[in-house]
Design a protein around this nucleic acid. Structure first.
Length: 104
DNA sequence: GATATGACCGCAA
DNA sequence: TTTGCGGCCATAT
């Protein structure tokens, strides 16, 4: 039988490892999950997460340091609130923390 | 098969 | 710093 984890499974696994209060980007996640330049794939997978998931999806932002959800949307507000609850500071719409980088 | 779309990215100007 | 554009890759039509 195939125990091969799907791309979706690997992305979930990588996102789950992001430490509290730290952030990563779609591109970094794609790279770590072995998807190469599949940043858009990561974005698609994030958009399809089941409600009530325990995954720290809010710690994933784009390469510009900004939240990718439409500004003003409910999703944007929730992601920003969750990050601020973890002491991530926003300045002019950008997360002030240096983005989390994986340690090889 | 061709085209359009998306929680993206890097780079040039 | 911000914008625009090409590149990227899975899905939907």
């Amino acid at each position: 039988m195939s125990n091969e984890p799907s791309d979706e499974q690997r992305v979930w696994q990588v996102v789950a490892l992001i430490p509290v209060g730290q952030i990563s980007t779609y591109g970094e996640i794609a790279e770590m999950a072995g998807l190469g330049r599949g940043a858009r794939l990561v974005g698609r997978i994030m958009s399809r997460l089941p409600q009530g998931t325990t995954l720290p999806w809010h710690r994933v932002i784009n390469a510009s340091g900004r939240i990718s959800l439409p500004a003003g949307s409910a999703g944007y507000a929730e992601q920003r609130r969750r990050l601020e609850d973890e002491d991530v500071v926003f300045i002019k719409g950008r997360a002030s923390l240096r983005r989390y980088r994986w340690r090889p």
